[in-house]
């Protein structure tokens, strides 16, 4: 029968081993040779876009890379789906954008900020999401295929 000291050793040993593997895998994931994000394409505008994304808590309604509030559309590949003019108009609108009656906060962004947001979305749209980008954005995929066929 298992003794208390053996149970303690199982807890401490198991924790230590899995933690070390976890740290090892984290380092492996962060190696430049394993980058799936085009890290070199992160410009000052992309960083500004991310800052705006966070300070306005866009994730509280929308999702990006599948993470967010599930109340408003997923924004991975949104530029391909909606186009830059529509996105800019929504972000700069002084009245709430309300598709199907569901209201978005009117952020009244400046043109510069709206462009930074678009750059951020473009960078996100180029990520290799291990297949999720095609799953979550069928419209973008279909649209691209139609354009290719033309």
């Amino acid at each position: 029968m298992l003794s208390k000291s053996q149970a303690q050793a199982f807890f401490l040993g198991g924790t230590l081993v899995t933690f070390l593997i976890f740290i090892g895998l984290t380092i492996y994931s962060m190696m430049p040779s394993n980058d799936q994000t085009n890290h070199e394409n992160i410009t000052a505008e992309v960083i500004q876009g991310k800052h705006l994304w966070e300070t306005n808590n866009c994730m509280g309604c929308h999702s990006i890379m599948g993470e967010g509030g599930y109340y408003a559309p997923e924004l991975t590949k949104v530029v391909e789906r909606k186009g830059e003019p529509v996105i800019k108009a929504i972000l700069m609108s002084p009245v709430p954008w309300a598709p199907n009656g569901r209201k978005m906060v009117a952020y009244e962004m400046s043109e510069e900020d709206a462009e930074a947001m678009i750059e951020y979305f473009k960078w996100i749209g180029e990520l290799d999401l291990n297949g999720f980008d095609h799953m979550v954005s069928p419209l973008a995929k279909d649209r691209m295929e139609k354009m290719k066929n033309k």
Partner: peptide
């Protein structure tokens, strides 16, 4: 001890399920 051992044994590396489709 056994229960918390199982928790860490599975839970630490189980973090990976959040990393499937976020660009890593």
């Amino acid at each position: 001890y056994v229960i918390v051992g199982l928790t860490f044994l599975s839970g630490i590396l189980g973090t990976g399920h959040h990393y499937y489709y976020i660009g890593v």
